[in-house]
Structures are given as C-alpha cells and as structure tokens.
Design a protein around this nucleic acid. Structure first.
Lengths: 346, 346
DNA sequence: TTGAAAGCGCTAACAT
DNA sequence: ATGTTAGCGCTTTCAA
C-alpha cells in the first residue's frame, strides 16, 4: 500500500488544494475548477461562493497537476546565451510584448555561448513540456537539434537567418549586415580598415558579420588591414584598450569596424580624447543600435539589429501556432537591419 | 468513461514516456525511473540497457508528472522589475552562480515596477510550486505579501534592507548608501547640490537613496538646491538632457547626484563637452558601479550596489534551506556598498 | 535487485 | 448547471 491511504491531517505548511476550496464553499471540486478557470456554465451564485472561498483561503492552483491532467502548459521556453551584452534584454522585452494577451509566460534559460550548457538547458526546459521554444541562433549540437526537432511544439530560432532552421526562424542575416556596412565604408572612401571584436569563436553572429564584412571588402579588392580580438567582457574600457593597441600597431588605419556598439563607443571616446579627426581622418562603426549610448559626443555609426522586433515576431509565431494548430510550421522571417551612419562615417 | 481507456496508438508527435523506455529495454518502468534518476540498487547490466534505450529513443523525462508525484520541483522563482537598467542582469548571474551544483534552476519573471504585475507574476510562478522564491524589493502589495508568506518555501527578498522582510533578506541599505554619498560630497566641500533621477515613484530603492541623501545633507544644514526628474529610459542621452536643463535653471550648482551611473555618464560627457572643470568647479556621482562604463574619460564617482554578491547570497540561502530543512528561516544579510570616488569627486 | 500498486492534484469526458 | 469517474506520467511504498 503506497503512502497513507487517507489524507494527512491538516498541515499548516501544506499548500491548499482544490478540495480545500471545495469543502470551504460546499461546491464540488469540478465546479470549483470550472469557476477558477473562468469556464462558462456555472451559476453566478455558485461562482461567487467559490471565488469568495478561494480568495479567503488564499488558494493558488497547482499548475503541475493541471498541466499533467490537461497536457497543456502555458510556458514558452526561451534559450539565450547571456544577458551581459545588452542585446538580449531587448529581445526578451519583445518576446513579452509578443506573448501579451496569449496567456503564455516566457521562461528563460542561459547558455553562456556554451553548446554543452545549451544542451543541458534545453533538456531541462523540454522536460517541463513547454508550449513552445524560442532559441537564439541556428548552431546547435547534434543532440540539441534532435531534441528540438522532437519537441512536439513550435520551435523558433531567432537572431540569425544564415543557416538551416529546425522549424521557424526570425532574424537578420548577419553576413549581409557585415556586407552592407563594408559597402557603406567603401563608398565613403575608407580603404585601410581594421576589425575589432571580442574573442568568442562561439558567437556565431559576430563571426558571420565579420566574415560578410571581410568578403565584401575582398570583392572590392580591399583586404582587412589589421584585426584585434580580446577576451572578456565588452565594456567601454575594452574598446579603449583594443583601439589603442590596434592603432599603435597599425597607425595608418582609416576605419575601425567593431563587433558591438559598446566597444565601439570606448574606441570613440579614446579617439576623441586623442583629438582624432572623426570621421575625416578615421571613421568608426559598431553594431546593434544600442540606444542607451545615444548620448555619446558623436553618434556612432551602427546597424540596428531589430532585437525587439525579432522577439516580438518570434513570440507571435509561437502564439499563433498554438492558437491555430493548422497554421503551417517552418515560417521564415528575415528582417532588414537599417544602417545608421551617425557622425562617425563620412 | 473518461478519455480512451486503452493507450492511444503510437503517435509520431507524442512525447515519449517512461513506458516507452520500459518496453524498449524490457525493464519495468520503476527500474527505468531508478536508472534515469541515478538511484542505486540497479545492476550495471540493467542500467546500461536502460540508458542505451533512453538515449536511442531520445527520451526526455516529464518533470510535470515527476513533480506531481514527488512534490519536488527544482525551480527557483526569481521576480525582478526589468532587465532594462543593467542592474538585474548581474543579479541574475549571481543567482546562477549561487545555484550552481544545487540542481536548482532559476525561472525569471518581470514586474516592470508595477505592483499589479508583480502580483500576477508571483501568482503564476507560485502556481508551479517552486522550491524557493527570490524577489526584488521589500515593497509588495497586500495580496503579494500574503502569497509569499503562505508560499511554503524559502522566500528571499533582495536588493534592499530598509524595511520589513517576509522571510530572508539580502541587500544593501539604499538609505545608508545615499547618506554615505552625501557625507563624502559634504566632506569634499560641495554645498550647492542638485539631484537627478528618472521619475519612477515605484523604484523604491532609488527613492530611498535620494531620501537618505537629502536627509544627510539636511543634518549638515544643507538643502538640496535643485532637482530634475525625467520619465522614460535612462540612457546617456537622458543624462545629457537632464544635466543641461538643470544647469540652465541652476547654473551655480557645484555637485550633481544622479540616481544611476548611466545618466551620470551622460551628464559627465555633456559637461566635459562644455569644458567644465571636473571635479573642481563641479562634481558628479552616480550609483551602481556599472563596470561597462569603466572606460569613460573620467571615472564617475559611484557606489557599488553589490549586485552579483546579492544574487549569489540569496541563491545560497535558498539552496541551503532546501538542503537542510532544519536551517532557520528569516536570515538577514546587509551588505556594505563601497564608495568609489573615481575622478569626479574631489 | 526488481516489480506492483496506489495516488500526487488536477481536468476530460460523461452522466445527470 | 453540477457531479462522478478515470487517468495524465511519474514516484512512493511496500512486497518479493
């Protein structure tokens, strides 16, 4: 015989159950359940009694039991690398917006750009049988891909469109973003171009931008003149140090392309401190369109990564697919990032 | 008769169950469960067969069922206002660190500084019966307090210690932080002091800092000379605009105390652009110790809010309380923020 | 070392 | 409009 067959004596710390509300209101558990879920076919009088009892007792439904019984979970798993770089907070805001009114709740997990961690986090999240999955990037380990493909729920890969998607995808082409920035820089007449980034081989989006950038230069017969990659966080200070180091080595550079706005801003501040002629003698560009940085002495040339929009669209796809199971999977949305020339690109 | 009494035919999209692994391995569900949970008392041969079958099928356990059966959930609910201001990402990192090795997973919800939203988010999260709750701030609506008090799990309120806690609390005293900054400013000889912040009546921590600051000035017989409060995001641009507006109105101010580092940095950049004598003619200070901003032309005076440490300690408390149910509740940890004078406070 | 049976708290499907 | 019953997929408890 498992457990004690009769209910345990009332325990102060025991969370309340539907049965408690049922007993307190003199209404069957089933009807209590109907009231609390806002279903119809309950008389106003009964409804009122139940609601009063639930509120008085402070009943909080047990979604674990509810989800098991109904096979319905209102959670959307969101798997992103980190919160350190100012890009994902905005994606998350977009996701919240896109989920608004759908009754779905985002649940966030972090991978730290580590494939093994991504696999663990996905496994953890999928074990809660979420209603949908939103995951950053198209590059996943084999096991992670297999899990996602078998997840049995909508899967939206976000941020990046350069690659093969498992199901739906919403993002921008980072390769194209790099190419377009290269094009603008070439059009402005810069020719001795340096690249600066943080050393993150697993940041595939930064890598693709840099590749697209270098490819476009190459097509114009221009080679990347020098590169500087640092490890560690990407703050203003890092941008300063990298810029100084790069220019010490290659003083004739006339343009610096940074892998993100924060290090770009650091470089900008350092160059201004040196009295550099920007954008005449040397130009700068970053990436992301971080508006926290709008108040710099010069507006840094950058490219908006459509972060909020990506989050919103991804969430909408999940919400729509759940609302209408007949909706076709595999949707593909490529957003067009807009170049902001700012004051650092002549 | 509910549902179909016999199991449905194998459906391609149906998630796998323990039974599938049981059938594939020829081992009882119970033993499969033991293997997958890493419990002892299973022969190596059986263990191997089960693991092979689970891996081959791509089985992902259903934690909903597991949690219902065992009343054990490995989730820690984390409720914070937003990710917009660079303070909470670091708190979250701290929480992840503090949970490391405990098998617990953080699940994050956002309130947008809105008490009604906080209540909804808490209700949602508690309905998943988390193993613990970490919530920002001590100010909650009545219903939210009641829910937390009845949650039946460790509750840690973080960031702030100025007030009454429900259970445990880890944070700093923002009132004291404001006082200490006021003291340093007075000691440096500044007397015409202005306050700048974003207009967020529900950001209780910023409010308490400003109150503590003004109180300490008052004790020295110094009144706050002028104040400027803006709505909307707090980026560099906002800091610029606010500083300009405030100084246009009160040009004789000799110190500006900002409610956060980002607007402080904006003000600093604007003043430097004006050729202001910093910290001689005018001094500046922010709050948070945001190291992304370390590379500014001058290091802004600030006060480290111990964000990562707060997250780590809060997570440790939850982990410890779960590991040892006899551990006493109501722990109270007040951290001491350290003043960094930087280059903007003489 | 393995298995069988009951039941976690809720909801689906009937029945009334 | 309300109640009854079985069972969601797992784990606990006991038996073998």
């Amino acid at each position: 015989m498992p457990r004690s067959p009769s209910r345990p004596a009332r325990d102060a710390a025991r969370p309340l159950t539907l049965r408690d509300v049922s007993e307190a209101s003199g209404v069957s558990e089933m009807t209590v359940s109907r009231v609390l879920r806002g279903l119809g076919d309950v008389s106003p009088a009964t409804r009122a009694r139940v609601q009063e009892a639930a509120a008085r007792l402070g009943y909080v439904p047990n979604r674990i039991a509810g989800a098991l019984a109904s096979s319905r979970v209102n959670l959307v798993a969101v798997v992103i690398p980190s919160l350190g770089n100012m890009v994902f907070p905005e994606v998350l805001s977009g996701i919240s917006e896109g989920l608004e009114g759908s009754g779905l709740q985002p649940v966030v997990g972090f991978t730290d750009y580590d494939p093994a961690r991504e696999e663990r986090v996905l496994f953890e999240m999928l074990s809660w049988r979420p209603a949908g999955v939103i995951v950053a990037g198209l590059e996943h380990g084999e096991a992670a891909r297999a899990m996602l493909a078998r997840a049995g729920c909508p899967v939206v890969e976000i941020m990046d469109t350069d690659g093969e998607a498992i199901d739906a995808v919403v993002g921008i082409s980072h390769r194209r973003a790099g190419r377009e920035m290269a094009e603008a820089i070439l059009a402005a007449g810069y020719r001795r171009i340096g690249l600066l980034g943080t050393k993150m081989p697993l940041d595939h989006r930064a890598r693709k931008r840099m590749e697209g950038f270098a490819d476009r230069l190459a097509e114009a017969g221009v080679a990347v003149a020098d590169r500087e990659f640092y490890e560690g966080g990407s703050g203003l200070l890092k941008g300063r140090e990298m810029t100084q180091a790069l220019l010490a080595r290659s003083p004739d550079l006339d343009f610096l392309y940074y892998s993100n706005d924060m290090i770009g801003a650091g470089g900008l501040l350092w160059l201004l401190g040196q009295g550099a002629d920007i954008p005449g003698r040397i130009g700068l560009a970053g990436f992301n369109g971080v508006d926290l940085l709008d108040g710099l002495p010069r507006r840094l040339a950058t490219m908006d990564a459509c972060r909020r929009e990506i989050g919103r669209r991804a969430a909408s796809i999940v919400a729509r697919r759940l609302a209408d199971p007949a909706a076709p999977p595999g949707e593909r949305i490529e957003l067009a990032p807009t170049l902001q020339k700012g004051d650092t690109l002549r």
